[in-house]
Simulated scan of single mutants.
Amino acid sequence: MASVSMADVKRLRELTAAGMMDCKKALEEAEGDFDKAIDILRVKGAKDVGKRESRTASNGLVAAKHEGDSLAALLELNCETDFVAKSERFQELAARVVDHIVATKPADVPTLLASELDGKTVKEHLDETNAALGEKIEIRRFSLLEGGYITSYLHKTDPQLPPAVGVLVQLDKPNAQVGKDIAQHTAAMAPKYLSPDQVPAEVIEKERGVFEQMTREEGKPEAAIPKIVEGRLKGWYRDFTLLEQAWVKDNKKTIRQVAEEAGVQVLAFTRYRVGQP
């Protein structure tokens, strides 16, 4: 079996994104032939696809695609390491899938995976990339907004990696500056809901129960507890609902006020951060 240099191993890793030991073994088996080593890694990867199903894919990227101003998609595509996340093949796959989402408008992830893209299902494309890169590759989620005026914003948390935070904001009418401002605010402040009336009832009751227990443990008078709890719930809305949040550029204004002053209405938003709920 031929001996190989670390420089050759590194070069093969950069070409394939496979693990260092896998690259070393493939080069040794191929007796230094890079093309043959790549084929060996592809075969090994295909055999190992099933073994990766239980592994955690918590790295990756967020990608966006627009079709005009009133249709846009946001995709979170996951892998296991940041090394694969910044590979050309992984990023090309994300771009193809998010384009496909805009073109076909699938209802959910299972429908997307079963849909056909260039003669193969999206799931088959993921499996091929899984095999080639040696990591679990999965579509975690996507969002499709249609109608009104939609702005997207992608943010890199590390300049060496692809975007890890992505936002879509849907306004009722065009306003590029306000759309951009609200999208960047959303990326930074991570609201969970659009407005208080869109928070699920079970979430409100859970938070109200926590605040009630907290207030009692503080020894507040029983008669004052309901008012204190409602005050704390309003504070929670200011933290976690987009329209009630203080604008990052001027904390004297809420996002609701920013939109109203611009004569627009925020209809919806989506925010993804790789690996987070």
Results as ranks from 00 to 15, higher is better:
142 F>S: 13
115 S>F: 08
107 A>Y: 01
121 T>L: 10
147 G>T: 07
153 Y>S: 12
103 A>Q: 14
111 T>L: 03
133 L>N: 04
163 P>W: 00
109 V>I: 05
127 D>V: 12
153 Y>F: 14
131 A>W: 09
103 A>V: 06
139 I>D: 05
129 T>V: 15
125 H>M: 04
156 K>W: 04
122 V>Y: 02
123 K>Y: 04
129 T>D: 03
130 N>I: 02
151 T>A: 14
144 L>D: 06
155 H>E: 12
104 T>V: 13
145 L>K: 13
124 E>F: 10
155 H>S: 02
135 E>T: 07
147 G>N: 08
113 L>S: 08
159 P>I: 01
148 G>T: 12
147 G>L: 05
103 A>E: 14
110 P>H: 07
120 K>P: 04
157 T>C: 10
143 S>A: 15
134 G>D: 04
118 D>A: 14
124 E>S: 12
163 P>N: 00
150 I>K: 07
122 V>E: 02
152 S>H: 05
114 A>C: 09
130 N>Q: 10
159 P>T: 07
151 T>H: 10
120 K>F: 07
135 E>W: 09
160 Q>D: 15
144 L>A: 06
113 L>K: 11
111 T>F: 01
163 P>K: 00
139 I>N: 05
139 I>T: 04
111 T>R: 02
105 K>H: 11
156 K>T: 10
147 G>C: 07
161 L>Y: 01
109 V>L: 10
125 H>I: 00
163 P>D: 01
164 A>G: 13
164 A>H: 09
